[in-house]
Simulated scan of single mutants.
Amino acid sequence: MKIQVPATSANLGPGFDSCGIALAKYLVVEVIKPQEKWEIIHHLGSEIPSDENNLLIQTALQVAPEIMPHQLRMISDIPLTRGLGSSSSVIIAGIELANRLAHLNLSAEEKLTIATKIEGHPDNVAPAIFGDFVVACYDEATEQVLSVKHYFPECEIIAYIPSTELLTKESRQVLPQSFEYKEAVKASAIANVMIGAVINGNLALAGRLMEQDLFHEKYRAKLVPHLSQIRQICQRSKAFGCFLSGAGPTVLILTPKEEVATLMDQLRLLDNHAQIEQLAIDREGVQVF
């Protein structure tokens, strides 16, 4: 059995802690055989545990504490701590691992509720489960997650992935504790129209609004100085727009196909250590083979 979970990009600018898209980069977990102790075979670095201390196993045991230990193989091309949902992908894989080994028959909605309680918000875990573009919110009072999946319009996606990591905790610390009422209304209006534009397939408008976020990007700007540089490059081209992926430091650019080559050439000039990739939307979410 193999479990495949896509990378994700959260927020899309003003859709803070609510909107996300699934991307065609993947974490794959292969279940090899049962054995006395948990063992994960991987080449992801010595800092990633290979035993029950791995987030994958910790998540699975939260969902189904009695499942038998197995030998697993983990392969991932999702970069760690770069704002592309690496931890969310492991959480979803852990939930699916428990679901299959314990024969729980969890629905997608039940998986989303469990994942949101672990992760704290649904913006990454929802598209990792459902694929495509998902808008979701978590009601702590009822412990319900409400979500809507929709087709994200076809476009080219360029990811600018810096060589330096940025921890979500560090990126969260720069955010304000409260918002002025008028500012919150304005920020919410921008997010609402952005979502409407995506649903209508109007990426030119959606991209403009993604760049007008008031919830988080201006506070995180000092941690990701390349964001303003990339935005200037996009505004000189016919790109639809760019936004900080999750908590950063990765920046995603949405663009027509004819602009890709020029944009990638200009992005390479910013930092020759950065990873620059063309990505696609994953439409399926988590899959088991």
Rank of each mutant, 00 (worst) to 15 (best):
I95N: 01
I95L: 02
E96T: 11
E96G: 00
L97G: 03
A98Y: 02
A98R: 04
A98S: 01
N99V: 07
N99P: 07
N99C: 04
N99T: 02
N99L: 09
N99G: 07
R100G: 02
R100Y: 13
R100Q: 15
R100T: 13
L101M: 07
L101K: 07
L101Y: 00
A102D: 07
A102S: 14
A102N: 09
A102Q: 02
A102M: 03
H103C: 13
H103F: 14
L104I: 01
L104H: 08
L106W: 00
L106S: 02
L106A: 00
L106M: 08
S107P: 08
S107W: 07
S107V: 06
S107C: 09
S107T: 14
S107M: 11
S107R: 02
A108Q: 14
A108C: 11
A108L: 14
E109R: 11
E109S: 14
E110Y: 02
K111N: 01
K111A: 00
K111W: 03
L112N: 07
L112I: 03
L112W: 05
L112Q: 08
T113S: 14
T113R: 15
I114F: 12
I114M: 10
I114D: 08
I114C: 04
A115L: 06
A115D: 05
A115E: 03
T116M: 04
T116W: 06
T116A: 06
K117W: 00
K117T: 13
K117A: 14
I118C: 09
I118Y: 07
I118V: 13
E119Y: 08
E119D: 11
E119F: 02
E119A: 04
E119V: 07
G120W: 05
G120L: 05
G120N: 03
G120R: 08
H121S: 00
H121I: 11
H121V: 06
H121A: 01
H121K: 10
H121N: 09
P122H: 03
D123A: 10
D123P: 14
D123I: 01
D123L: 10
D123N: 11
N124R: 09
N124T: 07
N124A: 06
V125G: 08
V125R: 08
V125F: 05
A126V: 10
P127H: 10
P127K: 06
P127C: 09
P127V: 05
P127N: 11
A128Q: 12
A128F: 04
I129L: 05
I129E: 03
I129D: 05
F130Y: 13
F130T: 00
F130E: 02
F130V: 00
G131A: 03
D132T: 08
D132Q: 10
D132G: 06
F133A: 12
F133M: 12
F133N: 10
F133S: 08
F133D: 05
F133I: 00
F133H: 12
V134M: 03
V135H: 08
A136V: 01
A136D: 09
C137N: 15
Y138T: 09
D139I: 08
D139M: 06
E140N: 15
E140S: 15
A141G: 01
A141P: 00
T142L: 11
T142R: 14
T142W: 06
E143K: 13
E143V: 01
E143L: 09
Q144I: 11
Q144K: 14
Q144E: 15
Q144V: 12
V145Y: 03
V145W: 01
V145G: 01
L146W: 15
L146Y: 15
